[in-house]
């Protein structure tokens, strides 16, 4: 194998691992949040260090490839995209950790009706599905699959827009829960951000694979 291909392969494997890891973190954050599972929340926070170190590893691989092999064409697009995807993934990992942190800080279990009204579960699932799509599309090198993700992001944005009204009405009715409701509000906000990052990942991946720039285009 060509030396640069060895490097590319290394980056590829690491990014794949990163995607799986972040996906797992997010799905555990859902379980933890929905079930107020503090034990699981601790695990998530602990695992975050692995996400961080993997991010550094990927950065290092990319820098090495640029410095030593002066990649061009596909290789260049790959390395540049992976650098960006890497940082997006790390941010998603951060959000999973933040959500776990909220779980530890919420005093009382949030009421089921409220959770349903703000579509928390649906939101978690959408975000996780997006990461699953990324994992699948990435592993099978299929940029068409990546594009499916944009529709989900729109739903996430919609939910996010509606959440404030729902939560505000609830808080007016139950002022004592205001503290916990702020956490819920933040969680929803974070999940919306996860959607944004996932969308960035998809865009960067499409830039790599199809050399098309989708960013900032409607």
């Amino acid at each position: 194998m060509n030396p640069i291909e060895v490097e590319i392969e290394k980056i590829n494997d690491a990014v794949l691992e990163m995607i799986e890891l972040v996906k797992a973190q997010l799905s555990r954050s859902r379980d933890s949040f929905m079930n107020s599972d503090e034990e699981l929340a601790h695990q998530i926070i602990h695992t975050e260090t692995r996400v961080n170190s993997l991010e550094l590893t990927i950065d290092k691989y990319c820098e090495n490839t640029i410095a030593r092999f002066s990649p061009v064409a596909t290789d260049l697009r790959f390395v540049v995209s992976m650098l960006k995807i890497n940082s997006d993934l790390e941010r998603i990992g951060d959000y999973a950790e933040s959500i776990a942190d909220y779980v530890l800080n919420i005093n009382h279990k949030l009421e089921k009706t409220l959770m349903d009204n703000v579509r928390t579960d649906e939101m978690f699932n959408l975000a996780i599905e997006m990461l699953e799509l990324i994992a699948d599309a990435y592993a099978t090198d299929n940029s068409k699959k990546m594009k499916k993700l944009f529709a989900k992001d729109k739903v996430l944005n919609q939910i996010n827009k509606e959440k404030s009204q729902v939560i505000a009405e609830y808080v007016l009715a139950n002022p004592s829960t205001i503290h916990d409701c702020l956490y819920l509000h933040s969680t929803i906000k974070k999940l919306e951000r996860v959607g944004d990052h996932a969308k960035n990942i998809a865009e960067n991946y499409i830039f790599y694979s199809d050399a098309k720039v989708l960013k900032h285009k409607k």
Binding site: N2, I4, E5, P71, V72, A73, T74, D75, L76, R77, A211
Partner: peptide, 17 residues
């Protein structure tokens, strides 16, 4: 040509493959 060659031959040549 160097970021996004249209032809596979070009791609292979400039990327050293």
């Amino acid at each position: 040509i160097f970021l996004n060659p249209k032809k596979e031959k070009t791609e292979n040549y400039i990327s050293g493959r």
